[in-house]
Every structure is written in C-alpha cells, then in structure tokens.
C-alpha cells in the first residue's frame, strides 16, 4: 500500500468538501477518482502532496503521515510523488529544458550537468518530444504541453503520480494519446497512479479501479465495469452522458 487515506476532512469555511474520506492505493495500481466539478477531487490530491492542509484525518504515503511534516521532510516525501497539474503549470518564462531541470534544483540532489542532460533527454523521449528541448512553452500546442508536463513529472522517476484532470481541455484524439502515454509510463516505471478526472474515456483506458467521490465521501468503488453497472442513482449519473 503506497497511499492510505483515512477519515480525511477538509472544508472551506462552512463548505465541507471532504467528509471522512477514505482511499487506498496499492503498489502498481491505478485508481481514478470520479466526481463532479467542485466535489473536492483537486482538494484531495493537493492535500496528499501538502499543497493544502487537511482539517483532520490521516494521509499516509509509504507509511508516513504527510500531515504535520516540516518543510524538509515534506520535500523529501514529495520527491517520490509526481504531480501533473490540470493546467500543466509549465513555467512560461523558462525553456522546456529549464522547466525539466527545475525539480532537480533541490540542493540535496547532486547531479552533474551531463547527468541532468541525460535525464532531460530521457524524459522528453519518453513523452515523444525530444526536439522541443530549447523551445518555450508558449510555442507548444496544448497536447505537447501536457506531454512536457508529464515529462517534468517523470524526471525524478516518482513512485506515485497524481494526475489532476489530465485530459481536460484537450480534443478527444489528443486526450486518447495522453491516456495511452499514461498507461505506457505506468508500465515502464511501474508507478502507482491516482487519477482525478471526469473523462470516462480516459478513465476507461488508464484506471484499474474507480472511486466515486460523492458528497465528500468515498461513495462507491470498483472496476470501470462494476461502476457502470452500479444501480445507485448518484453513481449512475456519471455514466449516463
């Protein structure tokens, strides 16, 4: 078990987003969290990497609780978690190379320039864009940016990758390409994935297990087929479109 979330509570003022949420992610497994917009999916994964502080509950990553860590410990833990942002979060002012170098800036990661260069090349090759190395993010298309973003997530070879709506804003064909890339990466590096999405096509391709985040709870979980057959009205909504 790489991620174990128990009784997680998170609210903004009176608006309780997560209420006693539970989730388990096993080694090599790929779990998709399905939920409506504003249901707290992004909040969930931001709590996992410590971008947001949970109100209560526990989030254990590799057996270590992410809540209450100091900056140094948090950073050590984050190295093992890749985070793919919904809006890619590529640094506009930097080239692709500098974007990919950025996670390696940590002072305790000591790499020679040659090693860094090799890592960047490898990551870019993995996403199929080795020639974009000196381009600026603004020169790239949406799909390419997503791939570069994945490359940046991959550069530290994390054990877990958190995908925040990886296919949102992409056309179906590009979205499918990205989904396929996610599967390839999973296979190649044997990572565990937590995918936040409401794109059923993507989930169908990438996820081994689905978690329905409804009313702030882990409402139901199971394989894609199981969920599709679920008779619960609230679960059914997601598959009726």
């Amino acid at each position: 078990m790489v991620i174990e979330i128990k009784d997680l509570n998170k609210g903004f003022g009176d608006n309780k987003v997560l209420i006693n949420f539970d989730l388990n992610l096993y080694k090599g497994e790929s779990v998709a969290v399905l939920g409506k917009s504003g249901s707290g999916k992004s909040v969930l994964i931001k709590c996992i990497v410590g971008l947001m502080q949970a109100d209560s509950g526990s989030i254990k990553v590799f057996g270590k609780d992410m809540i209450g860590l100091n900056a140094e410990e948090l950073d050590q833990a984050r190295v093992r978690i890749g985070f793919l942002f919904q809006s890619n979060a590529l640094y506009d002012s930097m080239t692709v190379r500098e974007n990919l170098e950025f996670p390696l800036r940590r002072h305790w990661i000591e790499k020679t320039p040659e090693e860094v260069e090799a890592m960047i090349k490898e990551a870019l090759t993995n996403v199929g864009l080795p020639d974009t190395i000196d381009m600026m993010p603004s020169e790239l298309s949406g799909g390419m940016r997503k791939r570069i973003s994945i490359a940046r997530t991959l550069i530290l070879k994390p054990d877990i990758i958190l995908y925040d709506e990886p296919t949102t804003g992409l056309d179906p064909i590009t979205a499918k390409g990205i989904s396929q890339l996610m599967v390839d990466v999973q296979k190649k590096y044997n990572t565990s994935s937590l995918i936040i999405s409401h794109d059923l096509n993507c989930i169908k391709i990438t996820a081994d297990k689905l978690v329905m985040l409804i009313d702030g709870k882990n409402y139901a979980q199971g394989t894609y087929e199981e969920m599709k057959e679920n008779k619960d009205k609230k679960v059914k909504e997601f598959f009726e479109i």
């Binding site: 990497v49 984050r78 190295v79 978690i81 942002f85 919904q86 979060a89 506009d92 950025f102």
Partner: peptide, 21 residues
C-alpha cells in the same frame, strides 16, 4: 500579472511540489 498568472496556472503550486519554495 506574472505571479497572478503563475498562481492561476498552478505554476506556484508546481514549484512548491518541485521542492522549490
């Protein structure tokens, strides 16, 4: 504007996750 757009496009979050304060 720069930091604003970085905040909006989650670049600031990405930085934090990347181990840079």
């Amino acid at each position: 504007a720069e930091l604003g757009s970085m905040r909006v496009t989650e670049q600031i979050d990405a930085m934090e996750v990347s181990g840079t304060n």
